[in-house]
């Protein structure tokens, strides 16, 4: 129901930010975020950043899987 893509904030101007989405520079509304900053990775839906992406959890699934599989064996 809700297509969203990740992007990186390059520069901020008021409610909007220039965001790099896989090489495409788009103007994205960032008024839904608490204190957005340049270099932040954000999730974009309907032209709005709806959340900051937490890069620390990029490999979360892999970690969970590894732990669970090890438990079995």
């Amino acid at each position: 129901m809700c297509i969203a893509v990740p992007g990186k904030i390059i520069s901020i101007s008021g409610y909007y930010a220039a965001v790099d989405i896989m090489g495409v520079m788009a103007s994205v509304f960032i008024g839904l975020l608490e204190d957005p900053k340049e270099e932040d990775m954000v999730l974009i839906h309907a032209g709005c950043a709806i959340q900051r992406i937490d890069q620390e959890h990029f490999s979360y699934l892999e970690k969970v899987f590894t732990v669970m599989q090890e438990e079995v064996h």
Binding site: C2, H45, A46, I50
Partner: peptide
């Protein structure tokens, strides 16, 4: 139109 994802926008 939308669910909770779109409502804030």
């Amino acid at each position: 139109v939308g669910f909770e994802t779109t409502a804030p926008a």
